[in-house]
Write a protein that binds this DNA or RNA. Structure first.
Lengths: 264, 264
DNA sequence: GAGTGGTCTAGACCACTGT
DNA sequence: CAGTGGTCTAGACCACTCC
């Protein structure tokens, strides 16, 4: 803990936190820092790796090392769930006015695009358990990618599962060409008579897999936030499971829990 | 991306995911892996760093490298908020039966200890804004550390802020010696006539700071989950702000959002 | 003390980014 | 092409763990 690279990292960390180095600033070339700190290149680079892992600097191959500017976090609120439910009986034009990107992520629609992909799959043991249905049950899987118009990599990847039996009464729901469906998933479910009673969100953070590093254009070793949204209808059935993944530094989740008044 | 260390990491990653190497297994010594893959020690160690960042292996100085066994995540549910509110008017003995560690984290009390520390501080600009009170307002700050009895490092660190003015009517609340207070924060607030209307949780994930690495005994570069719990009373005042920090791999947050029935 | 991982060096050569 | 970061090597020596 009193290693050379630790001391160098501490020095530079203090400079960044103290404002000597400001967000966006370019650090001196590594060769220069080597001379300044009287260490070998590898040792210096080790120090920079520490700072990178802490999210304080960003390395750009061929360009330089930079003090990181904090990226704006998208705020996703559970208020949307009730709002979306209310929208179900709103006129179609009103439903259309909401962008599609937010359908399952609950993100604001400004500047967002999304892509969808439908597939028919068999429930594995994990999904079967969540739905409380037999393994092998046919599920409609929809993969969404939300993307800011100004960015190349998607902001988030969502995967929605719905048991085919629950929605087969309306063949339109099985057809990807009907995307984007105005009004979101709750409206889609309403066309087959399904009303949601409550939604359960399970949130975890974990290191990104190599696939996710690829798809979301992350630095290896960074973490993602995973949300599993479980929709339960008024009959107590789990009617949809939606797994969403975001880069950990791009998202904030907000949950409002209303409390019942005291009964004394 | 086709570097030697990437290929080695990919090979070993496949072995772990494929079950050739099982959780808890000791990897061959680094010198042995060097011979097997015909690379230098530094290159091999680079590959291991990648796997460590992905959470797949764990390095133990002087002992060896091991396939990581997934630690059980603690599940924290927002159901607790209503439950805690109901407890306020329960008899004291019933309130006492709940352990103190869960008071603000919402964690189960089995095998948990906690430590508290009280201090009187002035609100900085950030806190002043959340409370909607002037900068410099006196706040009671309470720092909690929850710790599993079987572990040395704390599981989580909580910091609670309450404006002193709101609770000065009951001097007991300002006294650390009254900890643990049976029934949790909502009961404490009830002694000065404060009833909560709703609670807002803001959840983010970010790399641990050096302080947090120290306090929570983390590997540098890992991430923490930060929860800001904002309690709003029936008068619309923010009466408590509680920041809690957990190691990212130890926690799952669960939120139940109840939906109102359709009114057609 | 044997075994194992952690730090550090000096230097070669490759790869990316911009002018 | 100049500037800058990324990969890789061979080898010395230190630090931790456990018997």
């Amino acid at each position: 803990m009193a290693s050379k690279y630790d001391r160098i990292a501490a020095t530079m960390r203090a400079q960044i936190r103290g404002g000597v180095l400001k967000p966006g600033d370019k650090l001196p070339p590594e060769t220069e820092l080597v001379a300044k700190h009287h260490v070998s290149l590898s040792t210096l680079r080790r120090a920079l790796e520490v700072l990178e892992a802490e999210g304080l600097i960003e390395k750009r191959h061929g360009t330089g090392n930079f003090v990181r500017t904090m990226r704006q976090r998208i705020n996703r609120t559970n208020d949307r769930y009730q709002w979306e439910k209310n929208q179900v009986w709103a006129p179609e034009e009103e439903r259309r006015s909401e962008g599609p990107a937010e359908r399952d992520t609950g993100l604001p629609n400004d500047d967002f695009m999304f892509e969808a992909d439908y597939e028919d799959i068999a429930a594995d043991s994990g999904l079967a358990k969540v739905f409380n249905l037999p393994e092998g049950t046919r599920l409609l899987r929809r993969v969404y990618k939300t993307r800011k118009r100004t960015e190349s990599a998607p902001l988030g990847i969502g995967t929605s599962y719905i048991p085919c039996d629950y929605i087969s009464a309306n063949p339109d729901l099985l057809d990807v060409d009907n995307e984007p469906w105005p009004g979101g998933t709750q409206h889609q479910l309403s066309t087959v008579g399904i009303e949601l009673d409550h939604i359960i969100d399970e949130v975890i953070a974990r290191p990104a897999t190599t696939d996710e590093v690829e798809e979301l254009d992350l630095t290896p070793g960074t973490t993602v936030v995973c949300l599993r949204k479980i929709s339960v209808d008024t009959q107590g059935r789990v009617v949809e499971v939606n797994d969403v993944i975001w880069p950990g530094d791009r998202i904030m989740l907000t949950y409002r829990t209303k409390l019942e008044p005291w009964k004394r």
